[in-house]
Simulated scan of single mutants.
Amino acid sequence: MNLKRFGRPAVIAVAAALALSSCASNEAGTGSSTTAATTSTLTGTLTGAGSSAQGSAQEAWIKAFQTANPNVTVNYDPTGSGAGRSTFIAGGSDFAGSDSALNDTELAGTFAACAPGAKAVDLPVYISPIAVIFNVAGVTDLKLDSATLAHIFRGEIKTWNDPAIAALNSGVTLPATAITAVHRSDDSGTTKNFTDYLFQTAPTVWTDKAADAFPIQGGEGAKGTSGVVDAVTNGVGTIGYADASKAGKLGVAKIKVGDSFVGYTAEAAAAVVAESPLVTGRDASDLAIKINRTTTDATHYPLVLVSYAIVCTEYAKPAQGELAKAYVTYMASADGQKVAASAGGAAPLSTDLADKVAAVLATVK
């Protein structure tokens, strides 16, 4: 599906966005839509593809950006993170949205949209909790620790009244209903973040390293975030994982952090990311983050994804570089982050991280 939206922004003239400074992330969005629309000189079509978790935010971002820049069309296809990276690498899009950063093999290759010798970099633009969603008749509150969650998704805990689940949910009447664990059938950054959480926090049970492809046979596979949500919603005794913005009215489990069971919040997701280091061994302009899943701080929610805009440091077509630079600048700006929070419940980038993104974008051409 192709997302193309129009609407009302709260962004300043793109001329200002393109004159990036270290505080650009706070400046974008201060002018009126009328001013932005009448001063924008940008023109052309920008194409992105990838993360379905970013879907709601992308719709809102596009709506705002296109009104500020009436001669620009932005298309975004939420095909999933893996497909989005592949499309970008092959030159089928100008940027990718991905819930997992480029891996070492991808970074070592070439990118068709980039100028010869130029790199592609990962820029954080969207932070969101991952919700463990469930649909079990008669159960509204559910607590799970990571080891039990890992056993469920490995198919080793098969019914909802299993003693391991019951021990965590004193006072809750759990049915003997069979468990259907729903996972992503497509390559997914959400899967990579979910399996990374299990691998870091329950390594004796979940022995498979983080991966875009779900590593376990069995259960039920569904394509895209919407596919998982639909499968859990329409199934019986189902459990799955999805970007929290799509949880809707489904039950959402609390996960164990330290000695407490916590539900997701945008603030708790942002706190984990703010205290997590960048991935080492990469170019200084690449801002991939190694999330600390093993925190015991109950004010943190470690089952979180950081979704990236993957762009060229230099584009083969300068006009596309100008468009990508302006659009991603808006996405990462203070106003862009507010739009994402309103549309999809995203957690805002910290000031420090937003400044780092702005500094990299200042060099894109």
Rank of each mutant, 00 (worst) to 15 (best):
T34D: 03
P215R: 13
S245D: 13
V236K: 14
G82V: 06
A210D: 10
S52Y: 01
G281F: 01
G138N: 07
A13H: 09
A222D: 11
T148S: 01
F95P: 00
G55H: 07
A83Q: 14
D208P: 08
V252M: 08
V304E: 03
T225H: 03
L46K: 10
A49L: 04
S350A: 09
K63T: 03
K356Q: 10
S40M: 02
R184W: 12
N2K: 12
E275K: 12
A316W: 04
R5V: 09
F261C: 11
S33T: 08
K143Q: 15
A19M: 08
L323G: 08
L250F: 10
Q66G: 01
T47H: 08
T45Y: 04
A213F: 11
T67A: 13
D77M: 12
A57F: 01
N69R: 13
F199E: 10
T207W: 09
V257W: 12
L353Q: 09
L144V: 09
A334S: 15
F199L: 10
Y315D: 03
G321R: 01
L149E: 00
G31F: 06
T204W: 08
T313C: 00
Q66L: 00
G7Y: 06
G48E: 04
T38D: 09
I127N: 02
G224F: 10
P318G: 06
T195N: 06
A242H: 03
A147E: 01
V364T: 07
G171N: 14
V252G: 05
V132E: 06
I127V: 04
A346S: 10
G321T: 01
T41P: 01
I89A: 11
P175K: 13
F153D: 08
L149H: 02
S307V: 00
G218M: 06
A167W: 14
D212F: 12
D297P: 02
D230N: 09
T351E: 06
V304H: 05
P116N: 05
V306Q: 02
A37Q: 07
A181G: 14
A268W: 04
G82Y: 13
S285Y: 00
T329R: 06
D283G: 14
